[in-house]
Simulated scan of single mutants.
Amino acid sequence: MRKLFDPILAGGNLKDRLWACLGALLGIGLTSVISATFVHPHGTFLLIAAPMGAAAVLVFAVPASPLAQPWPVIGGNIIAALVGVAVRILVPAPELAAPIAVGVAILMMSLTRSLHPPAGAVALTAVVGGPAVADAGFAFVLVPIALNAIILTACGILFHRFSGHSYPHRVPTVVPAPIEAALRAEDLDKALADLGETLDVSREDLDLLFGRVEYHAAHRRTQSVGGGPLGRAT
Rank of each mutant, 00 (worst) to 15 (best):
G137T: 09
L142F: 14
M109H: 09
M109W: 12
F162M: 07
P92S: 03
F138E: 07
G103V: 11
A81T: 05
N77I: 10
Y167H: 03
R161C: 10
P72Y: 02
F162I: 10
A132K: 06
S110L: 14
G156D: 01
S65V: 11
D135R: 13
T112L: 13
P92H: 02
L147D: 00
A97M: 05
L142R: 01
I100P: 12
I151D: 03
F159W: 09
A136D: 00
A61I: 04
I74S: 05
R88H: 13
L82V: 13
G137H: 08
P168Y: 00
V141I: 12
N77M: 12
P72W: 00
L111Q: 10
C155Y: 09
L142G: 09
T153Q: 03
L82K: 05
V128I: 13
F138V: 10
A97D: 02
P63G: 04
F162L: 13
A121S: 13
A93N: 14
I79D: 10
H165E: 00
P94V: 04
V171W: 02
G130P: 04
T112V: 09
N77P: 01
G156H: 03
A136Q: 07
G120L: 15
P66H: 01
S114P: 11
I151L: 11
E95H: 10
P63N: 05
G130V: 02
P72K: 05
L107A: 15
A121I: 02
L124I: 12
A139W: 15
P144Y: 01
I150E: 01
H165M: 04
D135F: 10
L158N: 00
I151M: 14
V87H: 01
T153M: 03
I79H: 11
A154C: 13
L67A: 14
A105G: 10
A61E: 00
V104E: 07
V91Q: 00
I78A: 15
A134K: 09
V133T: 12
F162Y: 08
P131F: 05
I79S: 10
V133P: 05
L107G: 11
G130Q: 02
A93I: 13
V59E: 05
A121M: 05
V122P: 08
G164H: 01
V62I: 14
